[in-house]
């Protein structure tokens, strides 16, 4: 996209953590230093998967002040379109890759008296960076981390060893669950909640906080929607005067990029609003999957977020 230069990195380490999660360490090509970032930021990793170029966002989990390397953790998704599989199966130490400058859509509210973090599964990764940031500032935080099992509990050992008093771990297979009502009840004024995990967990925390009278501004969440495969469809791009076919395994945004039509983006996950595109004409149904547009905008047929949303029908004409 237009904007900051991308960053060329070399894969310095590939570490399998467990059956599902692998960690990658990126160092800048040609030495030098990477930009610092803020806890909660992600980078978009470019993958050349044969003919297809995939761009997936991953939370940065390393110390935000460490400029020698970035690390990410990738959970293998066998059902998805292949980005995580590509990372697991094709990326080797020594490979050169291209990543974006850090972007933060899940930053800490630095006014908070207390930061209450709730993680589910691979949703732990942004918190690893936020904890390092808060430790440096002597911040007040506690973490509640829910994992499927001990075997799949990424970074549990590290977290409980370094922060035994602030980290609470719950294993699904041992029938352990966060006692959310009791956890939220009695938190001091000025506490902010951060939740990162599966959609169900985010909705559960938001609904419970709302029912207990927590202000909307005190509840922060991040859910990256991976683009889902779907039926192929045809799109006419009015400005660039092109007709393109969106394949089963690619997103509308990726299809536009494939034919050289540049749409701006930051998150590629339906959250940031950058790729919002005006619909000029359509006959059919939108499959809106973003959480950027309001419900009435979804219903209006006037806008689409091409990073995650799709279309089924005869005609779709976009202002690109």
């Amino acid at each position: 996209m237009s904007g900051a230069e991308k960053i060329a990195v070399r894969v310095a380490e590939v570490t399998a953590l467990n059956a599902l999660v692998t960690r990658f360490r990126f160092e800048p090509v040609g030495g030098g230093l990477l930009p610092t970032f803020s806890g909660g930021a992600h980078t978009v990793v470019e993958m050349q998967d044969g003919e297809v170029k995939r761009l997936n966002p991953y939370s940065l989990m390393s110390d935000p002040f460490d400029q020698t390397a970035y690390t990410i953790s990738v959970r293998r998704d066998d059902e998805g379109r292949g980005g995580s599989l590509f990372m697991h199966e094709n990326v080797k130490v020594g490979d050169e890759m291209v990543i974006s400058n850090p972007v933060n859509l899940f930053s800490l509210d630095l006014r908070a008296r207390k930061h209450l973090m709730i993680a589910g599964g691979i949703g732990i990764t942004p918190f690893l960076a936020q904890i390092k940031q808060l430790d440096r500032a002597h911040g007040n935080w506690e973490l509640h981390y829910s994992c499927r099992s001990e075997a799949l509990g990424s970074y549990v050992d590290y977290l409980t060893a370094t922060h035994p008093n602030d980290v609470n771990v719950y294993y699904d297979d041992q029938k352990q669950a966060i006692d959310l009502e009791n956890l939220l009840d009695g938190q001091p004024l000025g506490t902010h909640i951060y939740v990162c995990g599966p959609k169900g967990m985010i909705n559960w925390v938001r609904a419970k906080a709302d029912a207990l009278g927590w202000p909307r501004e005190a509840v922060h969440y991040e859910e990256f929607l991976a683009p889902q495969p779907g039926k192929p469809f045809e799109v006419k791009l009015a400005v660039s005067n092109k007709v393109i076919q969106v394949g089963e395994q690619e997103s509308l945004l990726e299809a536009m990029e494939r034919v050289g039509v540049d749409a701006p983006y930051l998150c590629r996950g339906g959250a940031c609003g950058m790729c919002e595109t005006r619909v000029i004409d359509y006959a059919g149904n939108f499959i809106h999957r973003d959480h950027w547009l309001e419900d009435d905008e979804h219903a209006s047929g006037e806008k689409i977020m091409p990073c995650v949303s799709r279309f089924e029908g005869k005609t779709l004409v976009l202002d690109r």
């Binding site: 904007g3 900051a4 400058n101 850090p102 972007v103 701006p264 930051l266 609003g273 950058m274």
Partner: peptide, 8 residues
Amino acid sequence: LLNIQQGA
């Protein structure tokens, strides 16, 4: 402005 990125 909300979307201004690092380095841009």
